[in-house]
Design a protein around this nucleic acid. Sequence first.
DNA 1: ATAAGTGTTAATTAACAGGCTACAATTTTT
DNA 2: AAAAATTGTAGCCTGTTAATTAACACTTAT
Lengths: 95, 95
Amino acid sequence: MSRMYNPAHPGEVLREWLPEGMTVTEAAKALQISRVTLSKVLNAKAGITAGMALRLSAWLETTPDMWLGMQTQWDLWQAEQQPRPTIKPIDRQVA
Amino acid sequence: MSRMYNPAHPGEVLREWLPEGMTVTEAAKALQISRVTLSKVLNAKAGITAGMALRLSAWLETTPDMWLGMQTQWDLWQAEQQPRPTIKPIDRQVA
DNA sequence: ATAAGTGTTAATTAACAGGCTACAATTTTT
DNA sequence: AAAAATTGTAGCCTGTTAATTAACACTTAT
């Protein structure tokens, strides 16, 4: 199945969840990670890891699956853009 | 949210999708990866990547999300077992 | 003008996917 | 039965990437 549109990077979505005017430094402190790490995520220079998803969900009161799911969709879309081998569906001897 | 039970590693699930008696070598050939790589996945020595999920879905006629979703759940459960920092939910000035 | 703070890049470390080689164990062939 | 081929996994190596700290350019406050 191919995704029609380039899904947003989770970091881009995360931006919208940060309160207007909150600095990267403040958010990083709340998440107990370095501001460098958060900056990279926000600028799509790094993805959402399971540990990061847990932190985000605790802080923003969402599910970790939401964040990891976004990352998954992004990873999948990226992989789909790469040249891929032709794989013949398995033959299961239906009858 | 905590997952009650240790989810199966995707490689464990993959085992059940392989036709009875099919060798790792044959399956790897169909997936166009090395038998070493497939062996590692089956033995939970490596996870499912986006590229792997695309191969599996093409071969087994499933969705890539199914495989990546399993990996996500597994990763999350692993991360939840680790010691985690206490993160206070953001205060959004509700009123 | 100095000092403190902000966001990003650079450099380093750790973890991990994937490949190839090697090897023990099994299976097949002769 | 002996030899040859095949199978699955462990070891080693490479490339990628998440995370940290240090360093940087830039802004704001004193």
